[in-house]
Design a protein around this nucleic acid. Structure first.
Lengths: 107, 107
DNA sequence: TTGACATATCGAATAGTATCGATATAAGAT
DNA sequence: ATCTTATATCGATACTATTCGATATGTCAA
């Protein structure tokens, strides 16, 4: 939906930890064992992992991780879904596809 | 040849001017009219444009442009060929292809 | 060998990013 | 209403990037 700002995307990708988060979110079940433990069985946020689970895996402060995630969301790389007190972040494949296309065709 | 450092690549791509330079170098003849004016006819640096011609097009100081170009070269996005007092820069398609692959397969 | 030109490097000023701990907000449980 | 837990935001400090003008280096020509 949102328009692609490649500069912001590349800035977001210029960081090892953020790159890792994106990679890990390819296979959330594998990389975040406790994934969606807080969600009742009838609710499922496809591919989404909450901030706390991500924070546990990267070794940085809560505020830094929260900041990273919202940065990636603003760049369009992630999307956020709130459920109760938790925010679930998942990959935004649409943007990723656009970025790949941009590199192939524009750059 | 050189190994791909994606962080450095994404940093280099996080800038409008540098992105433009890369784009322009897709079609050097079209974007740099004076292209290779200094080279004798028997020498040709395929796709290469000298620093001065690039500087004329982006509106930044000589030192900034030289710095940008060497940054992009270190990241592997460009390669440099020196001829006499001129340095010709051209795209390094091998790296660009690797970056596209990385986005598709790793990220 | 001196002068002119192309490019690279240096040093400095300013702006932007990374990262933290502390605090605010919001939801859920008692 | 109060307490707890999850996340977001704030303010500070350290580090990195941007950009410049000045200077150094390298090459060619007279």
């Amino acid at each position: 939906m949102e328009n692609l700002n490649v500069i912001d995307v590349f800035k977001a990708l210029s960081n090892e930890t953020r790159l890792n988060i994106l990679k890990w979110l390819r296979e959330p079940e594998k990389n975040f064992p406790a994934q969606q433990a807080h969600l009742p069985k009838e609710v499922s946020i496809e591919g989404g992992v909450c901030v706390g689970d991500i924070q546990e895996k990267v070794n940085l402060s809560q505020s830094t991780v929260s900041h990273y995630l919202s940065l990636m969301q603003k760049a369009g790389l992630l999307e956020a879904v709130r459920y109760g007190q938790w925010t679930y972040y998942r990959r935004n494949e649409e943007t990723l596809a656009k970025v790949a296309k941009f590199i192939n065709e524009e750059i």
